[in-house]
Design a protein around this nucleic acid. Structure first.
Lengths: 162, 162
DNA sequence: AGTGGTTATGTTATTAAATAACACGGACGT
DNA sequence: ACGTCCGTGTTATTTAATAACATAACCACT
């Protein structure tokens, strides 16, 4: 979240996430799933939750310790874990990560397909629940977001590779 | 297009593009648009057309000259141009590029929103025309493609940044 | 408690991907 | 011919991600 294709005011770039509540929920979720929310994972999630918009891996690395930077593998491993748990999403077109807006919890496991509106200018991201591309246009319009390009990539296995 | 999460046959990984025809069409398109299809651009497009599936920038760089590699900026600039002309698409989740299946031509300019089915195993990509996410599932099913994850990212400008 | 398997982390080094900055050259209108 | 775009060549650097291997923590079983 640190590019500025413009010179105007970006004071709208503020998110209001209850970080502590999210961390506690994540802890409960991991416990229930038999996974461990270890120190580096917790710290990584905390940083992403606290960041205003999508966060680069190397920004996590830099801010990981109060004193110095963390080693890349430490953070990349934590990021993979958090992504698998559905706590964060990777934004492919930005090489960045953002906290899931509707993370799975103990009652409600749902590794969902998320869609994102990504502002070229302020760098903010908006996660929208959507089931159709027309929806994206609709929701974008409703939010006053001007769509310039949509990326749609489905990963999986082709017929002959299955 | 060079990962193999399996050991089985990949002989289905073959595309049949009439490279010469595409190059000629591209030349006509550029002429009509007042753009120049210069040598590095042509060479880059030729390599991507000839490649079997999405191609990495550094693979283009390596194969650019018969003798040695090209310099990265040469190729990255050409890639940007080709993408803007709608001749190739960037696959964000692979850091790779693939020739557009239905490129714009002199009669028919259409910078369209493409969707891709990307096989984890053979690396092949299938470009599908689609207007809804449900469509993706349908078309995937029809093609025998098992979808594991869908990335949807819309880039543009948010309300306050417009 | 001891032991062995599994999972996660620490650490060093390397590879891969992309861009910055600036100089040069060629096309084109006037 | 002249200036001005636009595109390229070139060097260097930045950014992003992973490989490989050693160490440590957790857990289940005896």
């Amino acid at each position: 979240m640190t590019q500025h294709a413009c010179d105007h005011d970006h004071s709208h770039d503020t998110t209001t996430i209850n970080v502590d509540a999210r961390l506690k929920a994540a802890e409960a979720l991991c416990l229930a799933s038999g996974e461990r929310l270890t120190a580096p994972r917790l710290r990584t999630y905390e940083l992403i939750l606290g960041n205003n918009g999508p966060m680069k891996a190397y920004d996590v690395i830099d801010r990981f310790h109060p004193e110095g930077a963390a080693k890349p593998p430490t953070v990349y491993r934590a990021l993979s874990f958090l992504e698998q748990m559905g706590l964060i999403h990777r934004i492919e077109s930005l090489n960045a990560f953002v906290a899931c807006a509707t993370p799975a919890n103990v009652d409600h496991h749902h590794p969902h397909t998320a869609a994102f509106l990504l502002c070229d200018c302020c760098g903010q991201s908006e996660e929208i629940a959507t089931l159709s591309l027309a929806d994206i246009e609709h929701q974008a319009q409703h939010l006053g977001f001007e769509v310039k390009h949509i990326t749609v990539e489905a990963k999986g296995r082709c017929k002959t590779c299955r």
